[in-house]
Design a protein around this nucleic acid. Sequence first.
DNA 1: TCATCTGTAAAAATCTTGTGAACGCAGGAG
DNA 2: CTCCTGCGTTCACAAGATTTTTACAGATGA
Lengths: 269, 269
Amino acid sequence: MALQNVNPQQTIRLAVIDDDSGFVTVLAKRTEAAGWQQRTLAGAIPPDELVAMKLNALLIDPAVLGDEAWAYLEQICGMLPDLGVIVCSGRSTVAQRVRGLRLGVDDWIAKPCHPEEAVARIEAVSRRRRRARPQAEAGPLVAGELEIRSDRFQAFVGGTSLDLTRREFELLQLLADARGQVLEREAIYQRVWGYAMAHGDRSVDVFVRKLRQKLEKLSPGWSYIHTHFGVGYRFDPEPLDGAAIEPLAEPAEQAAAEPQPVPSGVVVP
Amino acid sequence: MALQNVNPQQTIRLAVIDDDSGFVTVLAKRTEAAGWQQRTLAGAIPPDELVAMKLNALLIDPAVLGDEAWAYLEQICGMLPDLGVIVCSGRSTVAQRVRGLRLGVDDWIAKPCHPEEAVARIEAVSRRRRRARPQAEAGPLVAGELEIRSDRFQAFVGGTSLDLTRREFELLQLLADARGQVLEREAIYQRVWGYAMAHGDRSVDVFVRKLRQKLEKLSPGWSYIHTHFGVGYRFDPEPLDGAAIEPLAEPAEQAAAEPQPVPSGVVVP
DNA sequence: TCATCTGTAAAAATCTTGTGAACGCAGGAG
DNA sequence: CTCCTGCGTTCACAAGATTTTTACAGATGA
Protein backbone atom coordinates (compact mmCIF):
# COMPACT_ATOMS: atom_id res chain seq x y z
CA MET A 1 0.00 0.00 0.00
CA ALA A 2 1.40 3.31 -1.06
CA LEU A 3 1.23 5.84 1.72
CA GLN A 4 3.21 8.46 -0.07
CA ASN A 5 0.40 9.11 -2.47
CA VAL A 6 -0.22 12.56 -1.10
CA ASN A 7 -0.84 14.03 -4.48
CA PRO A 8 -3.77 12.61 -6.38
CA GLN A 9 -2.13 13.74 -9.59
CA GLN A 10 1.31 12.33 -9.52
CA THR A 11 4.59 13.51 -8.28
CA ILE A 12 6.59 14.80 -11.18
CA ARG A 13 10.26 14.03 -11.44
CA LEU A 14 12.00 17.01 -12.92
CA ALA A 15 15.57 17.70 -13.85
CA VAL A 16 16.89 21.16 -14.57
CA ILE A 17 19.90 22.11 -16.63
CA ASP A 18 20.42 25.78 -15.95
CA ASP A 19 23.12 27.85 -14.29
CA ASP A 20 20.92 30.74 -13.27
CA SER A 21 21.04 29.84 -9.61
CA GLY A 22 18.44 32.40 -8.66
CA PHE A 23 15.88 31.02 -11.02
CA VAL A 24 16.71 27.44 -10.12
CA THR A 25 16.35 28.15 -6.44
CA VAL A 26 13.01 29.87 -6.76
CA LEU A 27 11.78 27.11 -9.01
CA ALA A 28 12.96 24.45 -6.60
CA LYS A 29 10.99 26.11 -3.87
CA ARG A 30 7.79 25.94 -5.89
CA THR A 31 8.25 22.45 -7.14
CA GLU A 32 9.09 21.24 -3.69
CA ALA A 33 5.92 22.80 -2.40
CA ALA A 34 4.05 20.94 -5.10
CA GLY A 35 5.60 17.70 -3.95
CA TRP A 36 7.74 17.18 -7.01
CA GLN A 37 11.20 15.75 -7.05
CA GLN A 38 13.66 18.11 -8.61
CA ARG A 39 17.28 17.75 -9.41
CA THR A 40 19.70 20.20 -10.93
CA LEU A 41 22.20 18.92 -13.42
CA ALA A 42 25.51 20.52 -14.27
CA GLY A 43 25.44 20.04 -18.00
CA ALA A 44 24.66 17.66 -20.81
CA ILE A 45 23.88 14.25 -19.35
CA PRO A 46 23.97 11.14 -21.51
CA PRO A 47 20.49 9.93 -22.45
CA ASP A 48 20.85 6.60 -20.66
CA GLU A 49 21.59 8.34 -17.39
CA LEU A 50 18.48 10.40 -17.87
CA VAL A 51 16.57 7.18 -18.39
CA ALA A 52 17.92 5.85 -15.13
CA MET A 53 16.54 8.90 -13.34
CA LYS A 54 13.05 8.06 -14.53
CA LEU A 55 12.26 11.66 -15.24
CA ASN A 56 8.96 13.06 -16.33
CA ALA A 57 10.31 16.36 -17.54
CA LEU A 58 13.53 18.16 -18.28
CA LEU A 59 13.87 21.93 -18.15
CA ILE A 60 16.88 23.17 -20.01
CA ASP A 61 18.54 26.46 -20.79
CA PRO A 62 20.46 25.92 -24.04
CA ALA A 63 22.92 28.64 -23.08
CA VAL A 64 24.49 26.24 -20.60
CA LEU A 65 25.39 23.80 -23.34
CA GLY A 66 26.73 26.32 -25.82
CA ASP A 67 27.24 25.02 -29.33
CA GLU A 68 26.18 21.53 -28.52
CA ALA A 69 22.74 22.58 -27.41
CA TRP A 70 20.98 21.76 -30.70
CA ALA A 71 22.64 18.41 -31.06
CA TYR A 72 21.87 17.57 -27.47
CA LEU A 73 18.23 18.55 -27.80
CA GLU A 74 17.90 16.49 -30.91
CA GLN A 75 19.50 13.51 -29.26
CA ILE A 76 17.37 13.74 -26.16
CA CYS A 77 14.11 14.25 -27.99
CA GLY A 78 14.89 11.51 -30.46
CA MET A 79 15.85 8.92 -27.91
CA LEU A 80 13.44 9.78 -25.12
CA PRO A 81 10.07 10.46 -26.70
CA ASP A 82 8.37 10.03 -23.35
CA LEU A 83 10.37 12.72 -21.64
CA GLY A 84 8.80 16.16 -21.57
CA VAL A 85 11.39 18.69 -22.69
CA ILE A 86 10.94 22.37 -21.90
CA VAL A 87 13.45 24.90 -23.09
CA CYS A 88 13.80 28.04 -21.05
CA SER A 89 16.06 30.46 -22.81
CA GLY A 90 16.99 34.11 -22.74
CA ARG A 91 16.52 35.89 -26.02
CA SER A 92 15.46 33.66 -28.86
CA THR A 93 14.20 34.16 -32.38
CA VAL A 94 11.07 32.69 -33.90
CA ALA A 95 13.28 30.56 -36.10
CA GLN A 96 15.08 29.13 -33.11
CA ARG A 97 11.89 28.33 -31.28
CA VAL A 98 10.37 26.71 -34.34
CA ARG A 99 13.51 24.70 -34.86
CA GLY A 100 13.43 23.52 -31.29
CA LEU A 101 9.77 22.60 -31.32
CA ARG A 102 10.24 20.73 -34.58
CA LEU A 103 13.11 18.84 -33.07
CA GLY A 104 10.81 17.49 -30.44
CA VAL A 105 10.91 20.11 -27.71
CA ASP A 106 7.52 20.30 -26.03
CA ASP A 107 7.51 23.90 -24.92
CA TRP A 108 9.81 26.87 -25.20
CA ILE A 109 9.62 29.58 -22.57
CA ALA A 110 11.32 32.95 -22.58
CA LYS A 111 13.40 34.09 -19.67
CA PRO A 112 12.75 35.90 -17.46
CA CYS A 113 9.68 33.91 -16.69
CA HIS A 114 7.48 33.65 -13.68
CA PRO A 115 8.28 30.41 -11.86
CA GLU A 116 4.60 29.72 -11.40
CA GLU A 117 4.12 29.73 -15.14
CA ALA A 118 7.14 27.51 -15.62
CA VAL A 119 5.65 25.06 -13.15
CA ALA A 120 2.29 25.17 -14.88
CA ARG A 121 3.87 24.54 -18.26
CA ILE A 122 5.96 21.67 -16.97
CA GLU A 123 2.82 20.23 -15.50
CA ALA A 124 0.96 20.64 -18.77
CA VAL A 125 3.71 18.88 -20.64
CA SER A 126 3.80 16.03 -18.14
CA ARG A 127 0.05 15.69 -17.99
CA ARG A 128 -0.13 13.02 -20.65
CA ARG A 129 1.05 10.29 -18.32
CA ARG A 130 -2.17 10.44 -16.40
CA ARG A 131 -3.20 7.05 -17.70
CA ALA A 132 -4.64 5.08 -14.85
CA ARG A 133 -2.06 2.68 -13.56
CA PRO A 134 -3.70 0.66 -10.86
CA GLN A 135 -1.16 -2.05 -11.45
CA ALA A 136 0.37 -1.75 -8.03
CA GLU A 137 -2.92 -2.39 -6.32
CA ALA A 138 -4.52 -4.65 -8.86
CA GLY A 139 -4.52 -8.22 -7.77
CA PRO A 140 -2.39 -10.75 -9.54
CA LEU A 141 -3.18 -10.94 -13.20
CA VAL A 142 -4.17 -14.43 -14.20
CA ALA A 143 -3.94 -15.61 -17.79
CA GLY A 144 -4.21 -19.23 -18.72
CA GLU A 145 -2.12 -21.16 -16.25
CA LEU A 146 -0.06 -18.09 -15.65
CA GLU A 147 -0.18 -15.79 -12.68
CA ILE A 148 1.60 -12.49 -12.92
CA ARG A 149 2.32 -10.81 -9.62
CA SER A 150 3.64 -7.31 -9.96
CA ASP A 151 4.19 -7.14 -6.21
CA ARG A 152 6.82 -9.84 -6.55
CA PHE A 153 8.16 -8.87 -9.97
CA GLN A 154 7.58 -12.46 -10.90
CA ALA A 155 5.23 -14.81 -12.70
CA PHE A 156 4.12 -18.22 -11.48
CA VAL A 157 2.57 -21.36 -12.82
CA GLY A 158 0.92 -23.49 -10.21
CA GLY A 159 2.89 -21.81 -7.49
CA THR A 160 6.35 -22.24 -8.99
CA SER A 161 8.21 -19.22 -10.19
CA LEU A 162 9.23 -18.73 -13.79
CA ASP A 163 12.47 -17.16 -12.54
CA LEU A 164 12.10 -14.18 -14.78
CA THR A 165 14.73 -11.50 -14.83
CA ARG A 166 13.71 -7.90 -14.52
CA ARG A 167 13.54 -7.23 -18.23
CA GLU A 168 11.73 -10.46 -18.91
CA PHE A 169 9.16 -9.65 -16.30
CA GLU A 170 8.60 -6.13 -17.54
CA LEU A 171 8.14 -7.36 -21.07
CA LEU A 172 5.71 -10.04 -19.99
CA GLN A 173 3.77 -7.60 -17.90
CA LEU A 174 3.56 -5.09 -20.70
CA LEU A 175 2.31 -7.68 -23.14
CA ALA A 176 -0.16 -9.13 -20.69
CA ASP A 177 -1.49 -5.71 -19.74
CA ALA A 178 -2.18 -4.99 -23.38
CA ARG A 179 -4.81 -7.72 -23.29
CA GLY A 180 -4.80 -9.29 -26.70
CA GLN A 181 -3.71 -6.18 -28.46
CA VAL A 182 -0.90 -6.33 -30.97
CA LEU A 183 2.06 -4.27 -29.84
CA GLU A 184 4.65 -3.12 -32.30
CA ARG A 185 8.30 -3.71 -31.51
CA GLU A 186 9.08 -0.03 -31.36
CA ALA A 187 6.30 0.54 -28.86
CA ILE A 188 7.40 -2.40 -26.74
CA TYR A 189 10.99 -1.29 -26.69
CA GLN A 190 10.01 2.27 -25.95
CA ARG A 191 7.99 1.26 -22.95
CA VAL A 192 10.21 -1.44 -21.49
CA TRP A 193 13.63 -0.04 -22.23
CA GLY A 194 12.57 3.57 -21.83
CA TYR A 195 14.04 5.01 -24.98
CA ALA A 196 13.65 4.77 -28.72
CA MET A 197 14.64 1.50 -30.37
CA ALA A 198 17.57 1.69 -32.71
CA HIS A 199 16.92 0.42 -36.19
CA GLY A 200 17.76 -3.23 -36.42
CA ASP A 201 17.80 -3.87 -32.70
CA ARG A 202 16.64 -7.42 -31.97
CA SER A 203 16.44 -7.24 -28.21
CA VAL A 204 12.67 -7.56 -28.17
CA ASP A 205 12.82 -10.73 -30.23
CA VAL A 206 15.46 -12.22 -28.02
CA PHE A 207 13.50 -11.54 -24.87
CA VAL A 208 10.34 -12.90 -26.39
CA ARG A 209 12.21 -16.08 -27.08
CA LYS A 210 13.47 -16.28 -23.52
CA LEU A 211 9.97 -15.73 -22.24
CA ARG A 212 8.54 -18.36 -24.52
CA GLN A 213 11.16 -20.81 -23.35
CA LYS A 214 10.40 -20.28 -19.71
CA LEU A 215 6.69 -20.27 -20.32
CA GLU A 216 6.75 -23.50 -22.20
CA LYS A 217 8.90 -25.13 -19.60
CA LEU A 218 6.36 -24.61 -16.87
CA SER A 219 3.21 -24.38 -18.90
CA PRO A 220 3.44 -26.56 -21.95
CA GLY A 221 0.08 -26.98 -23.53
CA TRP A 222 -0.45 -23.25 -23.59
CA SER A 223 0.60 -20.68 -26.06
CA TYR A 224 0.90 -17.16 -24.74
CA ILE A 225 2.84 -14.88 -27.04
CA HIS A 226 1.88 -14.74 -30.69
CA THR A 227 3.92 -13.23 -33.48
CA HIS A 228 2.37 -10.87 -35.97
CA PHE A 229 4.72 -10.88 -38.90
CA GLY A 230 5.93 -7.46 -39.84
CA VAL A 231 4.21 -5.88 -36.88
CA GLY A 232 5.02 -7.16 -33.44
CA TYR A 233 3.68 -9.43 -30.73
CA ARG A 234 0.39 -10.13 -29.05
CA PHE A 235 -0.26 -11.75 -25.69
CA ASP A 236 -3.21 -14.08 -25.60
CA PRO A 237 -3.25 -17.32 -23.66
CA GLU A 238 -4.57 -20.19 -25.73
CA PRO A 239 -4.63 -23.82 -24.78
CA LEU A 240 -2.67 -25.77 -27.29
CA ASP A 241 -5.13 -27.97 -29.03
CA GLY A 242 -4.26 -31.54 -28.34
CA ALA A 243 -2.10 -31.91 -31.36
CA ALA A 244 -2.80 -35.58 -31.03
CA ILE A 245 -6.35 -35.00 -32.16
CA GLU A 246 -7.33 -35.04 -35.80
CA PRO A 247 -4.29 -34.78 -37.89
CA LEU A 248 -6.47 -36.20 -40.64
CA ALA A 249 -8.97 -33.58 -41.74
CA GLU A 250 -8.08 -31.27 -44.56
CA PRO A 251 -7.13 -27.89 -43.20
CA ALA A 252 -8.22 -25.93 -46.26
CA GLU A 253 -11.88 -26.85 -46.32
CA GLN A 254 -12.09 -26.75 -42.61
CA ALA A 255 -10.66 -23.29 -42.57
CA ALA A 256 -13.28 -22.02 -44.97
CA ALA A 257 -16.12 -23.73 -43.21
CA GLU A 258 -15.82 -22.59 -39.65
CA PRO A 259 -14.38 -19.80 -37.60
CA GLN A 260 -11.66 -21.95 -36.24
CA PRO A 261 -9.68 -20.60 -33.38
CA VAL A 262 -6.21 -19.71 -34.40
CA PRO A 263 -4.09 -22.82 -34.32
CA SER A 264 -1.72 -23.00 -31.46
CA GLY A 265 1.64 -21.40 -31.73
CA VAL A 266 0.93 -20.36 -35.23
CA VAL A 267 2.31 -17.23 -36.73
CA VAL A 268 -0.46 -14.82 -37.41
CA PRO A 269 0.42 -12.43 -40.23
CA MET B 1 15.53 3.86 -51.86
CA ALA B 2 14.39 7.39 -51.16
CA LEU B 3 12.60 7.61 -47.88
CA GLN B 4 11.30 11.11 -48.18
CA ASN B 5 8.41 10.56 -45.89
CA VAL B 6 6.52 13.74 -46.40
CA ASN B 7 4.15 12.85 -43.61
CA PRO B 8 6.09 11.43 -40.74
CA GLN B 9 3.12 11.98 -38.52
CA GLN B 10 -0.37 11.85 -39.76
CA THR B 11 -2.14 14.82 -41.11
CA ILE B 12 -3.36 17.03 -38.29
CA ARG B 13 -6.97 18.05 -38.04
CA LEU B 14 -7.19 21.51 -36.59
CA ALA B 15 -10.07 23.78 -35.69
CA VAL B 16 -9.68 27.47 -34.99
CA ILE B 17 -11.92 29.70 -32.92
CA ASP B 18 -10.73 33.21 -33.63
CA ASP B 19 -12.19 36.26 -35.29
CA ASP B 20 -8.92 37.83 -36.32
CA SER B 21 -9.44 37.05 -39.98
CA GLY B 22 -5.97 38.16 -40.95
CA PHE B 23 -4.31 35.76 -38.56
CA VAL B 24 -6.66 32.94 -39.44
CA THR B 25 -6.03 33.39 -43.13
CA VAL B 26 -2.29 33.41 -42.80
CA LEU B 27 -2.45 30.41 -40.54
CA ALA B 28 -4.69 28.55 -42.94
CA LYS B 29 -2.15 29.12 -45.67
CA ARG B 30 0.61 27.56 -43.62
CA THR B 31 -1.39 24.62 -42.36
CA GLU B 32 -2.65 23.88 -45.82
CA ALA B 33 0.89 23.86 -47.11
CA ALA B 34 1.71 21.36 -44.38
CA GLY B 35 -1.12 19.14 -45.54
CA TRP B 36 -3.29 19.66 -42.49
CA GLN B 37 -7.01 19.98 -42.46
CA GLN B 38 -8.15 23.23 -40.93
CA ARG B 39 -11.55 24.57 -40.16
CA THR B 40 -12.59 27.87 -38.66
CA LEU B 41 -15.41 27.89 -36.15
CA ALA B 42 -17.62 30.85 -35.36
CA GLY B 43 -17.78 30.44 -31.60
CA ALA B 44 -18.19 27.98 -28.80
CA ILE B 45 -19.07 24.63 -30.27
CA PRO B 46 -20.59 21.90 -28.10
CA PRO B 47 -18.03 19.27 -27.13
CA ASP B 48 -19.87 16.46 -28.87
CA GLU B 49 -19.68 18.31 -32.17
CA LEU B 50 -15.99 18.73 -31.65
CA VAL B 51 -15.74 15.01 -31.08
CA ALA B 52 -17.52 14.38 -34.34
CA MET B 53 -14.90 16.42 -36.16
CA LYS B 54 -12.19 14.05 -34.98
CA LEU B 55 -9.86 16.91 -34.27
CA ASN B 56 -6.29 16.66 -33.15
CA ALA B 57 -6.02 20.21 -31.96
CA LEU B 58 -8.06 23.29 -31.25
CA LEU B 59 -6.65 26.80 -31.38
CA ILE B 60 -8.76 29.29 -29.53
CA ASP B 61 -8.75 32.99 -28.75
CA PRO B 62 -10.70 33.41 -25.51
CA ALA B 63 -11.65 36.93 -26.50
CA VAL B 64 -14.15 35.51 -28.99
CA LEU B 65 -16.05 33.78 -26.23
CA GLY B 66 -16.10 36.65 -23.78
CA ASP B 67 -17.14 35.75 -20.27
CA GLU B 68 -17.79 32.16 -21.04
CA ALA B 69 -14.26 31.51 -22.13
CA TRP B 70 -13.08 29.98 -18.85
CA ALA B 71 -16.09 27.77 -18.49
CA TYR B 72 -15.79 26.65 -22.06
CA LEU B 73 -12.11 25.87 -21.75
CA GLU B 74 -12.76 23.87 -18.64
CA GLN B 75 -15.53 21.96 -20.30
CA ILE B 76 -13.52 21.20 -23.41
CA CYS B 77 -10.40 20.15 -21.58
CA GLY B 78 -12.37 18.02 -19.18
CA MET B 79 -14.47 16.23 -21.74
CA LEU B 80 -11.97 15.80 -24.54
CA PRO B 81 -8.79 14.53 -22.98
CA ASP B 82 -7.46 13.57 -26.39
CA LEU B 83 -7.81 17.00 -27.91
CA GLY B 84 -4.85 19.33 -27.86
CA VAL B 85 -5.93 22.80 -26.80
CA ILE B 86 -3.85 25.86 -27.59
CA VAL B 87 -4.93 29.28 -26.44
CA CYS B 88 -3.81 32.24 -28.49
CA SER B 89 -4.72 35.43 -26.74
CA GLY B 90 -3.90 39.11 -26.81
CA ARG B 91 -2.68 40.51 -23.52
CA SER B 92 -2.73 38.06 -20.67
CA THR B 93 -1.39 37.91 -17.16
CA VAL B 94 0.72 35.22 -15.63
CA ALA B 95 -2.21 34.31 -13.42
CA GLN B 96 -4.48 33.85 -16.42
CA ARG B 97 -2.00 31.68 -18.24
CA VAL B 98 -1.37 29.58 -15.18
CA ARG B 99 -5.08 29.19 -14.64
CA GLY B 100 -5.55 28.10 -18.23
CA LEU B 101 -2.70 25.64 -18.18
CA ARG B 102 -3.96 24.18 -14.92
CA LEU B 103 -7.38 23.79 -16.44
CA GLY B 104 -5.94 21.54 -19.05
CA VAL B 105 -4.84 23.89 -21.80
CA ASP B 106 -1.74 22.52 -23.48
CA ASP B 107 -0.11 25.72 -24.58
CA TRP B 108 -0.80 29.42 -24.32
CA ILE B 109 0.61 31.72 -26.96
CA ALA B 110 0.63 35.49 -26.95
CA LYS B 111 -0.72 37.43 -29.87
CA PRO B 112 0.67 38.75 -32.09
CA CYS B 113 2.54 35.61 -32.86
CA HIS B 114 4.36 34.36 -35.88
CA PRO B 115 2.17 31.81 -37.68
CA GLU B 116 5.12 29.52 -38.12
CA GLU B 117 5.55 29.34 -34.38
CA ALA B 118 1.85 28.72 -33.90
CA VAL B 119 2.07 25.84 -36.35
CA ALA B 120 5.12 24.44 -34.61
CA ARG B 121 3.43 24.61 -31.23
CA ILE B 122 0.25 23.01 -32.51
CA GLU B 123 2.40 20.30 -33.97
CA ALA B 124 4.23 19.83 -30.68
CA VAL B 125 1.00 19.56 -28.76
CA SER B 126 -0.46 17.07 -31.22
CA ARG B 127 2.69 15.03 -31.11
CA ARG B 128 2.52 14.76 -27.37
CA ARG B 129 -1.18 13.98 -27.34
CA ARG B 130 -0.76 11.29 -29.91
CA ARG B 131 1.97 9.56 -27.98
CA ALA B 132 -0.09 9.63 -24.85
CA ARG B 133 -2.85 7.57 -26.38
CA PRO B 134 -1.56 5.46 -29.22
CA GLN B 135 -4.60 3.59 -30.43
CA ALA B 136 -7.09 3.12 -27.67
CA GLU B 137 -9.88 5.01 -29.31
CA ALA B 138 -10.35 3.82 -32.85
CA GLY B 139 -13.13 1.30 -32.49
CA PRO B 140 -13.49 -1.45 -35.03
CA LEU B 141 -14.61 -0.21 -38.41
CA VAL B 142 -17.46 -2.27 -39.81
CA ALA B 143 -18.28 -2.43 -43.50
CA GLY B 144 -20.57 -5.05 -44.94
CA GLU B 145 -19.62 -8.35 -43.37
CA LEU B 146 -16.18 -6.98 -42.73
CA GLU B 147 -14.76 -5.81 -39.45
CA ILE B 148 -11.48 -3.93 -39.49
CA ARG B 149 -9.66 -3.85 -36.19
CA SER B 150 -6.66 -1.62 -36.11
CA ASP B 151 -5.71 -2.81 -32.65
CA ARG B 152 -4.96 -6.18 -34.17
CA PHE B 153 -3.71 -5.07 -37.55
CA GLN B 154 -6.27 -7.42 -38.93
CA ALA B 155 -9.71 -7.70 -40.53
CA PHE B 156 -12.34 -10.27 -39.68
CA VAL B 157 -15.49 -11.73 -41.16
CA GLY B 158 -17.72 -13.36 -38.63
CA GLY B 159 -14.85 -13.70 -36.22
CA THR B 160 -12.49 -15.32 -38.67
CA SER B 161 -9.32 -13.51 -39.53
CA LEU B 162 -8.57 -12.65 -43.13
CA ASP B 163 -4.89 -13.30 -42.39
CA LEU B 164 -3.85 -10.06 -43.93
CA THR B 165 -0.19 -9.13 -44.09
CA ARG B 166 0.87 -5.73 -42.91
CA ARG B 167 0.75 -4.10 -46.32
CA GLU B 168 -2.54 -5.71 -47.18
CA PHE B 169 -4.01 -4.45 -43.97
CA GLU B 170 -2.72 -0.95 -44.44
CA LEU B 171 -4.10 -0.81 -47.93
CA LEU B 172 -7.48 -2.09 -46.83
CA GLN B 173 -7.59 0.35 -43.98
CA LEU B 174 -6.72 3.24 -46.22
CA LEU B 175 -9.39 2.33 -48.72
CA ALA B 176 -11.98 1.72 -46.04
CA ASP B 177 -11.21 4.96 -44.31
CA ALA B 178 -11.80 6.78 -47.56
CA ARG B 179 -15.40 5.61 -47.43
CA GLY B 180 -16.64 5.37 -50.98
CA GLN B 181 -14.17 7.86 -52.32
CA VAL B 182 -12.14 6.96 -55.36
CA LEU B 183 -8.44 6.96 -54.61
CA GLU B 184 -5.87 7.26 -57.34
CA ARG B 185 -3.05 4.78 -57.46
CA GLU B 186 -0.42 7.41 -56.88
CA ALA B 187 -2.23 8.66 -53.81
CA ILE B 188 -2.66 5.16 -52.45
CA TYR B 189 0.96 4.31 -53.00
CA GLN B 190 2.13 7.55 -51.49
CA ARG B 191 0.18 6.97 -48.32
CA VAL B 192 0.70 3.26 -47.83
CA TRP B 193 4.25 2.92 -49.04
CA GLY B 194 5.33 6.32 -47.81
CA TYR B 195 7.07 7.52 -50.93
CA ALA B 196 6.25 8.37 -54.51
CA MET B 197 5.20 5.60 -56.84
CA ALA B 198 7.56 4.86 -59.68
CA HIS B 199 6.07 5.01 -63.14
CA GLY B 200 4.74 1.64 -64.15
CA ASP B 201 4.74 0.17 -60.67
CA ARG B 202 1.93 -2.37 -60.33
CA SER B 203 2.21 -2.99 -56.62
CA VAL B 204 -1.12 -1.41 -55.84
CA ASP B 205 -2.90 -3.59 -58.38
CA VAL B 206 -1.24 -6.70 -57.05
CA PHE B 207 -2.23 -5.94 -53.49
CA VAL B 208 -5.76 -5.08 -54.48
CA ARG B 209 -5.98 -8.48 -56.08
CA LYS B 210 -4.69 -10.19 -52.96
CA LEU B 211 -7.20 -8.33 -50.88
CA ARG B 212 -10.05 -9.22 -53.20
CA GLN B 213 -9.02 -12.84 -53.06
CA LYS B 214 -9.01 -12.96 -49.31
CA LEU B 215 -12.19 -10.95 -49.07
CA GLU B 216 -14.06 -13.20 -51.44
CA LYS B 217 -12.87 -16.28 -49.69
CA LEU B 218 -14.45 -15.27 -46.41
CA SER B 219 -17.16 -13.00 -47.62
CA PRO B 220 -18.48 -14.14 -50.97
CA GLY B 221 -21.66 -12.41 -51.84
CA TRP B 222 -20.12 -9.05 -51.15
CA SER B 223 -18.08 -6.82 -53.31
CA TYR B 224 -15.81 -4.40 -51.52
CA ILE B 225 -13.19 -2.91 -53.79
CA HIS B 226 -14.29 -1.40 -57.08
CA THR B 227 -12.09 -0.46 -59.99
CA HIS B 228 -12.38 2.89 -61.70
CA PHE B 229 -10.76 2.44 -65.05
CA GLY B 230 -7.96 4.84 -65.64
CA VAL B 231 -8.29 6.32 -62.19
CA GLY B 232 -7.90 4.04 -59.22
CA TYR B 233 -9.93 2.14 -56.66
CA ARG B 234 -12.89 2.77 -54.43
CA PHE B 235 -13.96 0.91 -51.31
CA ASP B 236 -17.67 0.41 -50.94
CA PRO B 237 -19.27 -2.75 -49.61
CA GLU B 238 -22.12 -3.93 -51.81
CA PRO B 239 -24.03 -7.15 -51.55
CA LEU B 240 -23.77 -9.02 -54.82
CA ASP B 241 -27.01 -9.58 -56.63
CA GLY B 242 -28.94 -12.46 -55.11
CA ALA B 243 -29.09 -14.28 -58.44
CA ALA B 244 -25.46 -15.11 -58.30
CA ILE B 245 -25.63 -16.70 -54.89
CA GLU B 246 -28.04 -19.21 -53.40
CA PRO B 247 -26.02 -22.33 -53.47
CA LEU B 248 -28.17 -24.76 -51.53
CA ALA B 249 -25.23 -26.64 -50.17
CA GLU B 250 -22.53 -25.14 -48.05
CA PRO B 251 -21.53 -21.93 -49.67
CA ALA B 252 -18.31 -21.66 -47.81
CA GLU B 253 -16.79 -24.91 -48.97
CA GLN B 254 -17.94 -24.45 -52.49
CA ALA B 255 -16.56 -21.00 -52.70
CA ALA B 256 -13.33 -22.10 -51.23
CA ALA B 257 -13.08 -25.14 -53.43
CA GLU B 258 -13.19 -23.53 -56.83
CA PRO B 259 -11.89 -20.18 -57.85
CA GLN B 260 -14.99 -18.99 -59.61
CA PRO B 261 -14.35 -16.75 -62.57
CA VAL B 262 -16.74 -14.26 -61.12
CA PRO B 263 -15.32 -10.83 -61.84
CA SER B 264 -13.76 -9.79 -58.60
CA GLY B 265 -14.03 -6.16 -59.40
CA VAL B 266 -17.06 -4.32 -60.63
CA VAL B 267 -15.82 -1.88 -63.16
CA VAL B 268 -17.55 1.41 -63.01
CA PRO B 269 -17.20 3.58 -66.07
C1' DT C 1 -9.10 -2.30 -84.42
C1' DC C 2 -5.55 -0.29 -81.68
C1' DA C 3 -3.30 1.52 -77.78
C1' DT C 4 -3.84 1.28 -72.96
C1' DC C 5 -5.12 -0.22 -68.70
C1' DT C 6 -6.16 -4.05 -65.45
C1' DG C 7 -6.45 -8.91 -63.62
C1' DT C 8 -3.64 -12.95 -62.74
C1' DA C 9 -0.15 -15.98 -61.78
C1' DA C 10 4.36 -17.21 -60.69
C1' DA C 11 9.30 -16.29 -60.31
C1' DA C 12 12.73 -13.47 -58.14
C1' DA C 13 14.29 -10.46 -54.75
C1' DT C 14 13.87 -8.74 -49.98
C1' DC C 15 12.82 -8.55 -45.56
C1' DT C 16 11.60 -10.80 -40.85
C1' DT C 17 11.87 -13.79 -37.36
C1' DG C 18 13.68 -17.82 -34.56
C1' DT C 19 17.73 -19.43 -32.59
C1' DG C 20 22.21 -20.44 -30.69
C1' DA C 21 26.27 -18.61 -29.17
C1' DA C 22 29.82 -15.21 -28.19
C1' DC C 23 30.80 -10.89 -25.74
C1' DG C 24 31.09 -7.54 -22.13
C1' DC C 25 29.78 -5.87 -17.81
C1' DA C 26 28.67 -5.59 -12.93
C1' DG C 27 27.93 -7.64 -8.51
C1' DG C 28 29.03 -11.24 -5.23
C1' DA C 29 31.96 -14.86 -3.46
C1' DG C 30 36.20 -16.49 -2.18
C1' DC D 1 41.86 -8.28 -5.55
C1' DT D 2 40.52 -11.81 -8.72
C1' DC D 3 37.40 -15.21 -10.33
C1' DC D 4 32.71 -16.63 -11.16
C1' DT D 5 28.07 -16.11 -12.47
C1' DG D 6 23.91 -13.98 -14.03
C1' DC D 7 22.10 -10.79 -17.31
C1' DG D 8 21.59 -7.99 -21.15
C1' DT D 9 23.32 -7.10 -25.88
C1' DT D 10 24.91 -8.18 -30.36
C1' DC D 11 26.01 -11.20 -34.27
C1' DA D 12 25.51 -14.56 -37.74
C1' DC D 13 22.64 -17.84 -40.06
C1' DA D 14 18.87 -20.48 -41.71
C1' DA D 15 14.14 -20.94 -42.49
C1' DG D 16 10.19 -18.68 -43.83
C1' DA D 17 7.03 -14.97 -45.20
C1' DT D 18 6.23 -11.10 -47.70
C1' DT D 19 6.91 -7.83 -51.30
C1' DT D 20 8.35 -6.67 -55.86
C1' DT D 21 9.02 -7.72 -60.55
C1' DT D 22 7.83 -9.72 -64.78
C1' DA D 23 5.07 -11.61 -68.38
C1' DC D 24 0.89 -12.33 -70.60
C1' DA D 25 -4.07 -12.49 -71.37
C1' DG D 26 -8.43 -10.11 -70.91
C1' DA D 27 -10.89 -5.54 -70.75
C1' DT D 28 -11.88 -0.97 -71.97
C1' DG D 29 -12.63 3.05 -74.55
C1' DA D 30 -11.52 5.96 -78.59
